[in-house]
C-alpha cells in the first residue's frame, strides 16, 4: 500500500478527558498577615474578627498564595496532557463568595489578582465552588466530553465566620460527594491559626493538611504533579496521591 494502513487523518478527534479543579481560596483580612523583615507602624486595625498590628515590609500570605497559584498554572501548562485536561476555576471568599475566574481552556487563562477583604465566609465559598463544579460537569455531559473526578482545593488561614447555615450545608454537600466518590477534596490550613478541626469536617477520606506560611510553592508544585498524574490515568487506575510527602514538608 502506498501509505500506512491507518493515517492520522483517519482518526476520530476526541476531546481530552477533563479534570475540573476549583481553587477555593480565603481572601479574608487575616491573609494580609506578614512574615519576614517588617517594622511595626504603631497603628492597629480590626479585620476578620481580630485586632491587627499594622506593619511596613515583610511578605504577606496572600502575596505568597498569588505566587503559588501562578506557579501551579505554569506547571500545568508545561505538561503536554495536563494543559488540555485540567480546567481550573478560582473562587475567593471573604465578606462574600466570588467566582474570580470561571472554567475555560488553560491557554486562555491568566491568574487573576487576589485582593483582601474582611471576613471569612467559607461556607458560602465552598457552596459556590461546588455549584461551579456541578455546572461544569453538566456542560461536559451536554458536549459528550469525558471527565475525571473533580477536585476541590480549599485553602484558609482562619476560622469561618460567615453564615453558619451555609457552612453546615457546604460541609454536608462536600462530605456527601466525597463519600460517593464524586469529588476529591483537599482542605489546606495556612499557618498556625487555621482551624484544622473545621477543615477536617470537610474531608471524611483524608486529614486536612497544614501548610506553613511561605510554603505555598511546594504545595502547588505537589498539586500540579498530582494533577498531571490524574490527567494521564486510565480506567481502574486510581492515582495514589503522595499525601505523606506533602504532610512532611507541611509540618516543617
Amino acid at each position: 500500500m502506498n501509505n500506512q494502513l491507518v493515517e492520522l487523518k483517519d482518526l476520530k478527534n476526541n476531546p481530552t478527558h477533563r479534570v475540573p479543579v476549583c481553587l477555593c481560596l480565603d481572601t479574608s483580612g487575616s491573609m494580609g498577615a506578614v512574615t519576614g523583615n517588617f517594622t511595626y507602624t504603631g497603628k492597629t486595625s480590626f479585620l476578620d474578627g481580630k485586632k491587627w498590628d499594622l506593619v511596613d515590609g515583610g511578605t504577606s500570605r496572600i502575596f505568597e498564595l498569588q505566587q503559588g497559584v501562578s506557579l501551579f498554572f505554569e506547571a500545568i501548562k508545561e505538561d503536554g496532557t495536563a494543559k488540555y485536561a485540567a480546567e481550573i476555576s478560582i473562587v475567593t471568599f471573604d465578606d462574600t463568595a466570588k467566582c474570580l475566574m470561571d472554567f475555560t481552556s488553560l491557554e486562555d487563562q491568566r491568574v487573576p489578582e487576589l485582593t483582601l477583604g474582611d471576613n471569612t465566609s467559607m461556607g458560602e465559598g465552598v457552596n459556590l465552588a461546588l455549584d461551579l463544579l456541578e455546572k461544569r460537569k453538566q456542560m461536559y455531559h451536554q458536549m459528550g466530553i469525558t471527565y475525571y473526578q473533580p477536585w476541590l482545593v480549599l485553602m484558609t488561614d482562619g476560622e469561618p465566620n460567615g453564615n453558619p447555615a451555609e457552612l453546615d450545608r457546604a460541609i454536608s454537600r462536600t462530605v456527601d460527594l466525597v463519600k460517593k466518590e464524586k469529588l476529591s477534596v483537599f482542605p489546606i490550613g495556612i499557618g498556625e491559626e487555621a482551624d484544622m478541626a473545621m477543615l477536617n469536617r470537610f474531608s471524611p477520606a483524608r486529614r486536612a493538611l497544614k501548610v506553613k506560611e511561605l510554603k505555598f510553592r511546594e504545595f502547588f508544585d505537589w498539586l500540579s504533579g498530582s494533577l498531571i498524574k490524574a490527567s494521564q490515568s486510565g480506567p481502574g487506575e486510581k492515582v495514589k496521591l503522595d499525601v505523606d510527602s506533602i504532610q512532611g514538608w507541611g509540618e516543617l
Binding site: 493515517e7 482518526l11 476520530k12 478527534n13 476526541n14 458536549m143 466530553i145
Partner: peptide, 17 residues
C-alpha cells in the same frame, strides 16, 4: 480514543478499510 467518537458514538471509517 482513535477509532470511536465519544461525542457522536460513531466509528472511524478506516475500520471498514
Amino acid at each position: 480514543e482513535s477509532f470511536y467518537s465519544h461525542q457522536t458514538s460513531s466509528l472511524a471509517g478506516v475500520l471498514a478499510k
